[in-house]
Protein backbone atom coordinates (compact mmCIF):
# COMPACT_ATOMS: atom_id res chain seq x y z
CA UNK A 1 0.00 0.00 0.00
CA UNK A 2 1.44 3.39 -0.86
CA UNK A 3 2.07 5.42 2.27
CA UNK A 4 0.02 8.53 2.77
CA UNK A 5 1.72 11.61 4.03
CA UNK A 6 -0.45 14.63 3.45
CA UNK A 7 2.14 16.81 5.11
CA UNK A 8 5.14 15.53 3.19
CA UNK A 9 8.06 17.82 4.03
CA UNK A 10 9.64 19.52 1.05
CA UNK A 11 13.41 19.90 0.76
CA UNK A 12 13.08 23.58 -0.16
CA UNK A 13 10.99 25.65 2.27
CA UNK A 14 10.75 29.35 1.53
CA UNK A 15 10.07 30.91 4.93
CA UNK A 16 10.39 34.44 3.63
CA UNK A 17 10.54 35.67 0.04
CA UNK A 18 13.29 38.09 -0.96
CA UNK A 19 12.78 41.49 -2.55
CA UNK A 20 14.60 42.08 -5.83
CA UNK A 21 18.32 42.47 -5.26
CA UNK A 22 18.17 41.96 -1.48
CA UNK A 23 19.28 38.35 -1.55
CA UNK A 24 18.40 35.15 0.25
CA UNK A 25 19.81 33.22 3.17
CA UNK A 26 19.85 29.46 2.49
CA UNK A 27 19.90 27.46 5.71
CA UNK A 28 20.58 23.72 5.83
CA UNK A 29 18.29 22.15 8.44
CA UNK A 30 18.75 18.59 9.77
CA UNK A 31 15.26 17.94 11.15
CA UNK A 32 14.60 17.17 14.86
CA UNK A 33 12.54 20.37 14.88
CA UNK A 34 10.25 21.45 12.02
CA UNK A 35 11.77 23.73 9.38
CA UNK A 36 9.40 26.47 10.54
CA UNK A 37 11.52 26.82 13.70
CA UNK A 38 13.63 29.29 11.70
CA UNK A 39 10.73 31.75 11.47
CA UNK A 40 12.29 33.85 14.26
CA UNK A 41 15.43 34.32 12.16
CA UNK A 42 13.30 35.11 9.10
CA UNK A 43 11.65 37.94 11.03
CA UNK A 44 15.00 39.27 12.28
CA UNK A 45 16.55 39.57 8.80
CA UNK A 46 16.78 43.04 7.24
CA UNK A 47 13.86 44.16 5.07
CA UNK A 48 13.81 42.37 1.75
CA UNK A 49 16.22 39.59 2.65
CA UNK A 50 14.65 36.18 2.13
CA UNK A 51 15.11 32.94 4.06
CA UNK A 52 14.93 29.54 2.41
CA UNK A 53 15.41 26.36 4.43
CA UNK A 54 17.04 23.37 2.75
CA UNK A 55 15.49 20.59 4.82
CA UNK A 56 17.45 17.35 5.09
CA UNK A 57 14.52 15.72 6.85
CA UNK A 58 12.61 15.83 3.56
CA UNK A 59 15.09 13.36 2.05
CA UNK A 60 13.70 9.83 2.70
CA UNK A 61 17.15 8.25 2.87
CA UNK A 62 17.86 10.58 5.81
CA UNK A 63 14.62 10.92 7.80
CA UNK A 64 13.57 7.28 7.63
CA UNK A 65 16.80 6.31 9.39
CA UNK A 66 15.60 8.11 12.53
CA UNK A 67 12.53 5.86 12.58
CA UNK A 68 14.23 2.58 11.83
CA UNK A 69 17.13 2.33 14.24
CA UNK A 70 19.40 5.17 13.16
CA UNK A 71 21.17 3.63 10.18
CA UNK A 72 21.06 5.70 7.02
CA UNK A 73 21.87 4.18 3.65
CA UNK A 74 23.65 7.30 2.49
CA UNK A 75 26.72 9.45 3.14
CA UNK A 76 27.46 13.06 4.03
CA UNK A 77 28.76 13.62 0.48
CA UNK A 78 25.61 12.12 -1.10
CA UNK A 79 23.34 14.25 1.11
CA UNK A 80 25.37 17.31 0.18
CA UNK A 81 25.00 16.44 -3.51
CA UNK A 82 21.23 16.12 -3.12
CA UNK A 83 20.98 19.44 -1.31
CA UNK A 84 23.24 21.15 -3.85
CA UNK A 85 20.80 20.04 -6.57
CA UNK A 86 17.92 21.49 -4.52
CA UNK A 87 19.85 24.71 -3.94
CA UNK A 88 20.71 25.03 -7.63
CA UNK A 89 17.04 24.58 -8.52
CA UNK A 90 15.92 27.19 -5.99
CA UNK A 91 18.71 29.75 -6.46
CA UNK A 92 17.71 32.87 -8.37
CA UNK A 93 21.24 34.10 -9.17
CA UNK A 94 21.09 37.01 -6.72
CA UNK A 95 23.08 37.71 -3.56
CA UNK A 96 23.02 34.84 -1.11
CA UNK A 97 24.39 33.50 2.14
CA UNK A 98 24.74 29.89 3.22
CA UNK A 99 24.28 28.63 6.76
CA UNK A 100 23.63 25.34 8.52
CA UNK A 101 22.32 24.45 11.94
CA UNK A 102 23.69 21.50 13.93
CA UNK A 103 24.37 18.54 11.58
CA UNK A 104 23.07 20.82 8.82
CA UNK A 105 26.32 22.78 9.18
CA UNK A 106 28.35 19.62 8.47
CA UNK A 107 26.35 19.01 5.30
CA UNK A 108 26.52 22.70 4.32
CA UNK A 109 30.32 22.54 4.58
CA UNK A 110 30.27 19.53 2.22
CA UNK A 111 27.94 21.45 -0.13
CA UNK A 112 30.52 24.26 -0.40
CA UNK A 113 33.18 21.67 -1.29
CA UNK A 114 31.02 20.45 -4.16
CA UNK A 115 30.10 23.89 -5.51
CA UNK A 116 32.03 25.32 -8.47
CA UNK A 117 34.45 27.94 -7.03
CA UNK A 118 32.68 30.86 -8.72
CA UNK A 119 29.37 29.96 -7.11
CA UNK A 120 30.56 29.46 -3.55
CA UNK A 121 29.21 31.74 -0.82
CA UNK A 122 31.45 34.47 0.57
CA UNK A 123 31.51 32.56 3.86
CA UNK A 124 29.72 29.74 5.59
CA UNK A 125 27.81 30.37 8.82
CA UNK A 126 27.59 27.41 11.20
CA UNK A 127 24.96 27.45 13.94
CA UNK A 128 26.17 25.31 16.84
CA UNK A 129 27.47 22.63 14.46
CA UNK A 130 30.03 20.19 15.77
CA UNK A 131 32.93 19.70 13.36
CA UNK A 132 33.10 16.25 11.74
CA UNK A 133 36.75 15.97 12.67
CA UNK A 134 38.56 13.10 14.34
CA UNK A 135 38.34 14.87 17.70
CA UNK A 136 34.55 14.64 17.62
CA UNK A 137 34.08 11.44 15.65
CA UNK A 138 33.16 8.89 18.26
CA UNK A 139 31.72 5.39 18.51
CA UNK A 140 28.09 5.05 19.58
CA UNK A 141 29.23 3.66 22.95
CA UNK A 142 30.82 7.02 23.78
CA UNK A 143 27.37 8.62 23.86
CA UNK A 144 26.63 7.84 27.50
CA UNK A 145 23.20 8.22 29.16
CA UNK A 146 23.96 11.42 31.15
CA UNK A 147 25.02 13.17 27.95
CA UNK A 148 22.06 11.89 25.91
CA UNK A 149 19.50 12.50 28.65
CA UNK A 150 20.80 16.06 29.08
CA UNK A 151 20.52 16.73 25.34
CA UNK A 152 17.08 15.11 25.24
CA UNK A 153 15.83 17.36 28.06
CA UNK A 154 17.14 20.38 26.13
CA UNK A 155 15.38 19.17 22.97
CA UNK A 156 12.10 18.39 24.73
CA UNK A 157 12.09 21.81 26.38
CA UNK A 158 12.61 23.54 23.03
CA UNK A 159 10.01 21.38 21.32
CA UNK A 160 7.36 22.13 23.94
CA UNK A 161 8.32 25.76 24.55
CA UNK A 162 8.99 25.13 28.26
CA UNK A 163 12.46 24.53 29.67
CA UNK A 164 13.11 21.08 31.11
CA UNK A 165 15.86 21.67 33.65
CA UNK A 166 17.57 18.73 35.34
CA UNK A 167 19.62 18.63 38.52
CA UNK A 168 23.22 18.33 37.19
CA UNK A 169 24.33 16.08 40.07
CA UNK A 170 21.50 13.61 39.55
CA UNK A 171 21.98 13.78 35.78
CA UNK A 172 25.70 12.97 36.06
CA UNK A 173 24.97 9.68 37.83
CA UNK A 174 21.93 8.53 35.86
CA UNK A 175 21.27 5.63 33.51
CA UNK A 176 18.56 5.77 30.85
CA UNK A 177 15.67 4.54 33.01
CA UNK A 178 16.23 6.78 36.03
CA UNK A 179 17.30 9.60 33.71
CA UNK A 180 13.96 9.46 31.92
CA UNK A 181 12.20 9.63 35.28
CA UNK A 182 14.16 12.81 36.00
CA UNK A 183 13.09 14.21 32.62
CA UNK A 184 9.46 13.22 33.19
CA UNK A 185 9.33 14.89 36.61
CA UNK A 186 10.98 18.07 35.34
CA UNK A 187 8.84 18.17 32.18
CA UNK A 188 5.59 17.73 34.09
CA UNK A 189 6.69 20.35 36.65
CA UNK A 190 7.43 22.91 33.91
CA UNK A 191 4.28 22.13 31.95
CA UNK A 192 6.23 20.74 28.99
CA UNK A 193 4.35 17.43 29.30
CA UNK A 194 0.92 16.53 30.65
CA UNK A 195 0.85 15.13 34.18
CA UNK A 196 -0.43 11.76 32.96
CA UNK A 197 2.29 11.24 30.35
CA UNK A 198 3.25 7.55 30.57
CA UNK A 199 6.91 6.61 30.94
CA UNK A 200 6.78 4.14 27.99
CA UNK A 201 5.54 7.02 25.83
CA UNK A 202 8.42 9.24 26.89
CA UNK A 203 10.78 6.30 26.28
CA UNK A 204 9.56 6.04 22.68
CA UNK A 205 10.17 9.75 22.16
CA UNK A 206 13.66 9.40 23.66
CA UNK A 207 14.51 6.33 21.55
CA UNK A 208 13.47 8.13 18.37
CA UNK A 209 15.49 11.20 19.37
CA UNK A 210 18.55 9.04 20.08
CA UNK A 211 18.13 7.19 16.77
CA UNK A 212 18.32 10.58 15.03
CA UNK A 213 21.54 11.37 16.90
CA UNK A 214 22.99 7.94 16.15
CA UNK A 215 22.13 8.36 12.49
CA UNK A 216 24.13 11.60 12.38
CA UNK A 217 26.93 10.07 14.45
CA UNK A 218 27.16 7.11 12.07
CA UNK A 219 27.10 9.35 9.02
CA UNK A 220 29.91 11.43 10.52
CA UNK A 221 32.11 8.52 11.71
CA UNK A 222 33.40 7.37 8.27
CA UNK A 223 33.35 10.87 6.78
CA UNK A 224 36.70 12.49 6.04
CA UNK A 225 36.04 16.21 5.59
CA UNK A 226 38.38 18.44 3.61
CA UNK A 227 39.18 22.04 4.60
CA UNK A 228 36.58 24.64 3.67
CA UNK A 229 37.42 26.92 0.73
CA UNK A 230 35.65 29.92 2.28
CA UNK A 231 35.91 31.55 5.72
CA UNK A 232 33.82 30.00 8.47
CA UNK A 233 31.65 31.90 10.95
CA UNK A 234 30.61 29.82 13.94
CA UNK A 235 27.77 30.81 16.24
CA UNK A 236 28.01 28.59 19.32
CA UNK A 237 25.14 28.61 21.79
CA UNK A 238 25.82 29.57 25.40
CA UNK A 239 24.48 26.13 26.32
CA UNK A 240 26.04 24.35 23.38
CA UNK A 241 26.08 20.58 22.98
CA UNK A 242 29.85 20.78 23.62
CA UNK A 243 30.16 23.57 26.20
CA UNK A 244 33.93 23.26 26.75
CA UNK A 245 35.15 23.99 23.22
CA UNK A 246 34.18 27.43 21.84
CA UNK A 247 35.34 26.46 18.32
CA UNK A 248 33.42 23.14 18.34
CA UNK A 249 36.42 21.62 16.56
CA UNK A 250 36.27 23.66 13.33
CA UNK A 251 39.81 25.13 13.39
CA UNK A 252 41.44 22.36 11.26
CA UNK A 253 38.75 22.84 8.60
CA UNK A 254 39.07 26.63 8.42
CA UNK A 255 42.22 27.58 6.45
CA UNK A 256 40.49 30.79 5.33
CA UNK A 257 39.63 31.84 8.88
CA UNK A 258 37.23 30.99 11.69
CA UNK A 259 35.22 33.73 13.37
CA UNK A 260 33.50 32.62 16.58
CA UNK A 261 30.42 34.21 18.16
CA UNK A 262 28.42 33.20 21.21
CA UNK A 263 24.62 33.34 21.08
CA UNK A 264 22.15 33.28 23.97
CA UNK A 265 20.18 30.10 24.54
CA UNK A 266 20.92 26.42 24.10
CA UNK A 267 21.45 24.29 21.00
CA UNK A 268 17.72 24.42 20.23
CA UNK A 269 16.41 27.67 21.75
CA UNK A 270 19.08 29.67 19.88
CA UNK A 271 16.73 29.21 16.91
CA UNK A 272 13.66 30.68 18.60
CA UNK A 273 15.06 33.39 20.89
CA UNK A 274 14.74 36.86 19.34
CA UNK A 275 18.07 37.98 20.90
CA UNK A 276 19.88 35.03 19.28
CA UNK A 277 18.10 35.62 15.96
CA UNK A 278 19.20 39.25 16.02
CA UNK A 279 22.86 38.17 16.31
CA UNK A 280 22.55 35.49 13.63
CA UNK A 281 20.73 37.88 11.28
CA UNK A 282 23.73 40.23 11.42
CA UNK A 283 26.09 37.41 10.46
CA UNK A 284 24.19 35.93 7.52
CA UNK A 285 24.43 38.81 5.07
CA UNK A 286 23.70 37.80 1.48
CA UNK A 287 26.58 38.66 -0.82
CA UNK A 288 26.46 39.12 -4.59
CA UNK A 289 28.40 36.25 -6.10
CA UNK A 290 30.10 38.11 -8.98
CA UNK A 291 31.16 41.03 -6.75
CA UNK A 292 32.78 38.81 -4.19
CA UNK A 293 36.48 39.21 -3.59
CA UNK A 294 38.59 36.10 -3.33
CA UNK A 295 39.14 34.65 0.12
CA UNK A 296 42.67 34.59 1.46
CA UNK A 297 44.17 31.82 3.49
CA UNK A 298 45.05 32.73 7.06
Amino acid sequence: MPPRRSRVPLPVVRLRPSAAGSGTVYLVHPGALAAGVHATLAEALPDGVGLTVLDLSALPEYWEAALTGGRAETTVEALAGRLLDEFTGAYDGGPYALAGWSFGGVVAQAVVRQQPPAQRPARLVLLDSIAPTEEYQQPDEALLPPLLIGWFAMYLGAKRGRPVLLDPDRLAACGVDDGLLLVLDAAVASGALAADTPLPGLRKLYDTYVDGLLRNNRLTAPYRPRPTEVPLVLVAAERSLIPDDPTLGWTPLAPYGLEVHRSPGDHYTMLTRPDAAELIARLVRPTPVPARTGAKKV
Binding site: L193, P198, P200, G201, L202, R203, K204, L205
Partner: peptide, 9 residues
Protein backbone atom coordinates in the same frame (compact mmCIF):
# COMPACT_ATOMS: atom_id res chain seq x y z
CA UNK B 1 5.37 9.35 19.55
CA UNK B 2 4.30 9.30 23.20
CA UNK B 3 1.06 7.64 22.13
CA UNK B 4 3.01 5.11 20.03
CA UNK B 5 5.17 4.23 23.04
CA UNK B 6 2.15 3.82 25.28
CA UNK B 7 0.52 1.64 22.65
CA UNK B 8 3.58 -0.62 22.32
CA UNK B 9 3.61 -1.01 26.10
Amino acid sequence: LILAGEMEN
